[in-house]
């Protein structure tokens, strides 16, 4: 039950993009087209679901027993970069179809703050358990993908809309994101992932 609530909470109430502002640069940069937006969304789901449990294991079985918490940031970012590389090589070898659609987005993900941010919120701030981290990683990825796909669909409609010259491009995208964030406030209070932390 916990797991289901955390997945739902990560998508709706604690949306990684619309409530904690993680991964906004690709959200603005890649949301111009529906196809690339969904590709980026899938890549984030994939990497976040893998890196969160991996970093959880590293924190609880390596960093904490050795008492080297001050190294955590360096270790997390190296783990993320390493896992992204492994995922890329694995996909290229065994899933060439998926690789050709997601390949170009994978290197961008290392510097996507949604990944490191998700790790920091789940492991450092909320102190979730292992299965809860897996759930939060998957749900957070789905929530991010949902937001960028919604945004891409709206921006395709906006292509011929009369928008003031200065607001064209990133300006209007940010304002739409603001309106989306406002509508997501409607979900707030249903679930709070903070409550599941230890």
């Amino acid at each position: 039950m916990d797991i289901f609530l955390i997945v739902l909470g990560a998508i709706l109430t604690n949306n990684i993009l619309l409530t904690t502002f993680l991964g906004i640069c690709p959200f603005i940069g890649v949301s111009g087209e529906y196809a690339s937006a969904s590709g980026m969304g899938m890549a984030v789901i994939f990497v976040l679901t893998m890196t969160l449990p991996a970093n959880w294991l590293i924190k609880h079985f390596v960093l904490d027993p050795l008492g080297v918490g001050y190294l955590s940031l360096i270790v997390y970012i190296v783990t993320i970069a390493f896992l992204v590389q492994v995922v890329e090589m694995f996909m290229k070898r065994f899933l060439p179809a998926l690789y050709s659609s997601l390949g170009i987005f994978l290197p961008l993900i290392t510097v996507n703050c949604a990944i490191l941010g998700g790790v920091l919120f789940a492991i450092a701030t909320w102190n979730l358990g292992f299965m809860q981290s897996v759930a939060y990683g998957f749900g957070g990825g789905v929530g991010w993908a949902l937001a960028i796909i919604l945004m891409a669909a709206i921006r395709e409609r906006l292509r011929f809309a009369p928008i003031p010259e200065g607001l064209k491009g990133p300006g209007i995208a940010l304002i739409i994101a603001g309106l989306m964030a406002m509508s997501f406030v409607g979900f707030s209070g249903m679930i709070n992932i903070r409550d599941f932390g230890g």
Partner: peptide, 15 residues
């Protein structure tokens, strides 16, 4: 709340 952050930054970029 977060929505305000998006709106203010969007308007700043436009200005």
């Amino acid at each position: 709340i977060p929505a305000g952050a998006f709106l203010v930054v969007g308007l700043y970029v436009g200005i």
